[in-house]
C-alpha cells in the first residue's frame, strides 16, 4: 500500500495526528522565535516535556493522583448507587417524578460548584468534602439520563412482556433496564466530566494534596510547566474514561451502533 492509499483509508487518524503535531510545533516555534516571552509568564512544549519527565520520575505526582482518584471514585460510586435507582423509580412512578422534578431540575441547572465552600465546611478538607462535591455534580446526569431512558422504553415491548404473562420484575429486568442501558452510559460520560470538575474545584478551594492542588500551587508559584503537566494529565484521563464509556456502549448496545447518543 502506498502513502496515498494509506491516507484515504485512515484519513481521520492521519489528519488528527497531523493537526496535533502542527499545533504543538507552532506553539514551540512561536514562543522560541517570534515572541520569546519570559518563561515566567508563559511556557512552551519543550519546557512542559521536561517538567513532565521530572514529575513522572518523582513520587509527588503519583501521590497526588492517588489522592484525587480516591475522592473521585468515592463520589462517583455513590452517584452511581444513588442516581440509577432514583432515575428508574422516577421514570416508572409518575408520582415520584412529579414530587422530585422541580428540586432535581433546579439542582441540575445550577452551578453546583458554588456549594463547594459549604461542602468543605460540612465534610472537611479531606477526601469526604471532595467526594461530596464529586457526588453532587455527577449524580444528576445519572438520574436524568436513566429517567429519560425509562420514559423512552417502547410501550410495545412492555405489551409483549405482559402478553406472555410477564411480571413487573420481568418488565424491569428484561425490558426497562436493557433499553435504558445506552442512556445510562451516555449519562456516565457526562458524569465523568462533571465529576472531574468537582475534584479540581474542591482541591483548588481547600486541600493540601491532590492533582488539583498541585495545579493551583504550581500556578501560584509561577511554575507554569508543572501546571501544564497537571492539566494535560487531567485531560488524558478524561479522554480515556470517556472513550472507555463509548466502547462500553458499543458492547452493551450493539443495536445502537451508529446512533450517536449525547
Amino acid at each position: 500500500m502506498n502513502a496515498k492509499d494509506y491516507y484515504t483509508e485512515h484519513r481521520r487518524l492521519v489528519l488528527g495526528v497531523f493537526s496535533v503535531i502542527f499545533l504543538v510545533a507552532a506553539w514551540e516555534l512561536l514562543l522560541t522565535y517570534v515572541f520569546p516571552v519570559n518563561p515566567f509568564f508563559f511556557t512552551k512544549p519543550s519546557l512542559i516535556a521536561e517538567a513532565f519527565k521530572e514529575q513522572v520520575q518523582g513520587a509527588k505526582l503519583w501521590h497526588d493522583l492517588a489522592i484525587s482518584s480516591r475522592a473521585f471514585l468515592w463520589g462517583f460510586s455513590f452517584a452511581v448507587i444513588v442516581g440509577i435507582p432514583l432515575g428508574l423509580v422516577m421514570g416508572w412512578r409518575r408520582r415520584v417524578e412529579y414530587a422530585l422534578d422541580p428540586f432535581l431540575t433546579a439542582m441540575y441547572a445550577s452551578p453546583l460548584v458554588a456549594l463547594a465552600p459549604l461542602l468543605i465546611i460540612v465534610f472537611g478538607v479531606g477526601v469526604l468534602g471532595k467526594a461530596a462535591l464529586v457526588f453532587l455534580l455527577s449524580v444528576f446526569p445519572f438520574v436524568f439520563n436513566v429517567f429519560a431512558g425509562v420514559k423512552s422504553t417502547d410501550a410495545l415491548l412492555i405489551n409483549v412482556i405482559r402478553s406472555f404473562g410477564g411480571t413487573d420484575k420481568d418488565l424491569y429486568f428484561k425490558v426497562i433496564l436493557p433499553s435504558t442501558m445506552p442512556y445510562l452510559i451516555a449519562g456516565a460520560r457526562l458524569a465523568i466530566g462533571r465529576g472531574l470538575v468537582g475534584i479540581i474545584v474542591g482541591e483548588f478551594y481547600a486541600a493540601s494534596e491532590g492533582i488539583g492542588f498541585a495545579i493551583s500551587q504550581a500556578g501560584d508559584t509561577y511554575r507554569l510547566p508543572d501546571m501544564f503537566v497537571g492539566i494535560i494529565i487531567l485531560s488524558v484521563i478524561a479522554v480515556v474514561l470517556t472513550e472507555a464509556m463509548r466502547r462500553l456502549e458499543l458492547t452493551v448496545a450493539p443495536w445502537r451502533a451508529g446512533e450517536e447518543v449525547r
Binding site: 415491548l157 409483549v160 412482556i161 402478553s163 406472555f164 410477564g166 420481568d170 428484561k174
Partner: peptide, 27 residues
C-alpha cells in the same frame, strides 16, 4: 393465546434465538 405484532416487538438487545425463547423464559 399469543400475539404477532404489526411492529414486530422484538427486543433489540436479544439475538433471534433469545427473542424466540422470550415467551418460554417468562413461563
Amino acid at each position: 393465546r399469543a400475539m404477532v405484532f404489526q411492529e414486530f416487538g422484538l427486543l433489540p438487545w436479544r439475538t433471534v434465538t433469545a427473542n424466540v425463547e422470550l415467551g418460554l423464559e417468562l413461563k
